[in-house]
Computed example of a mutant assay.
Amino acid sequence: MNSRQHTAGGASRRQAMAEHVMRQGSASVTDLAEAFGVSVMTVHRDLDELERQGMVRKFRGGATAQASNVFESNIVYRRTAHQEEKEAIARHVARLIEPGSSIMLDDSTTALAVARHLGEVTPLTVVTNFLEAIKLLAAAPGIRLMALGGEYHPTHDSFLGVACVDAIEAMSTDMVVVSTSAVSDRYAFHQEQEIVLVKRAMLRSASRRVLAIDHSKLARVALHKVAPLDDFDTIVVDSRAPAEAVQLLREKHRNVEIAEL
């Protein structure tokens, strides 16, 4: 095996290891060594790298998937969290989209779930900064795909920064679908400033604004306010949301729709 193959193999193993920890919640070094057929020393090195990337938290003898603000933004964590709820939300949001319209998607995994259903409502023009969504839609029939550039951030698998904001501001779409990491009864929040700036630009560039959030985001706050809930035309949340949280949302925002699992 040459050095390039070895590096690629290590990266693949580390991603699988991170996903394993996230599914289990935590894992010991010895369990990981056995599961992946590598030495304890290799596991320690892998966990050091995963912790550096914000994917896991190390503790003595193992690692945990306990989320911190940075960890929650990581694409590997977001891919594995609340998949059933996101799929229900995606099906619901897809029914709100009119064939022949233009839609902008942010770099949330909820929006990615929506992207998987867009073939059902073609023709469409789709605009996104999320690399995984770009790859998914690149060969999709009936979809005109427009990719937003900028600085690539591997932690989010998306393009961000000034160039991305400038590209968004040069466009006007019929709808935008965004998700955020936290929602109170008045605001949508996110913990990272660069992502907030992109989401705000997207909201300014669309005629209809949809906030798609799973129930784990409700009654929470994060560091940065993305937008008041009044800025959204529709809020879609999954049916596992507590009734009292939904009622509170509806008292402040009339157009709250429930995606049935």
Rank of each mutant, 00 (worst) to 15 (best):
M146N: 05
A182H: 13
E98W: 05
A90Y: 04
A139L: 10
E34C: 11
V93I: 15
T128H: 02
A222N: 13
L50F: 12
Q53Y: 11
A167L: 00
A206F: 01
G150E: 01
G9M: 12
V162R: 13
V29R: 15
L197A: 15
S179C: 09
I103P: 03
A27M: 05
L96E: 14
M104N: 00
H6E: 14
I213K: 07
V177G: 02
L229N: 04
A259K: 03
V236P: 02
S172G: 02
V29Y: 04
L50P: 12
S205L: 01
E34R: 15
L131R: 05
V56P: 09
V70W: 10
G62L: 04
L249V: 00
V177F: 02
G25V: 05
V114R: 04
Q66K: 15
R186Q: 12
A88R: 09
L47A: 10
A241G: 02
T64R: 13
R254F: 11
E120P: 00
A206H: 04
V162T: 11
S158N: 01
L32H: 11
A243F: 09
S205Q: 00
V93W: 04
F59S: 00
R57Y: 01
A113M: 08
T155F: 00
E194P: 13
M22N: 05
A259V: 03
G150S: 04
P242H: 02
G150N: 04
T80R: 14
L47W: 02
R220Q: 11
E151V: 15
K217P: 09
M41N: 09
M146D: 10
H92D: 03
L96W: 02
H224C: 00
V121T: 15
F189H: 11
K252C: 11
Y187E: 07
P123I: 09
G149Y: 00
R204D: 13
L137D: 05
Q247L: 08
P228S: 13
V177W: 00
D238V: 08
S158Y: 01
N69K: 06
N2G: 15
E85T: 05
P154N: 02
D185P: 00
Y77K: 11
V178P: 04
R78P: 12
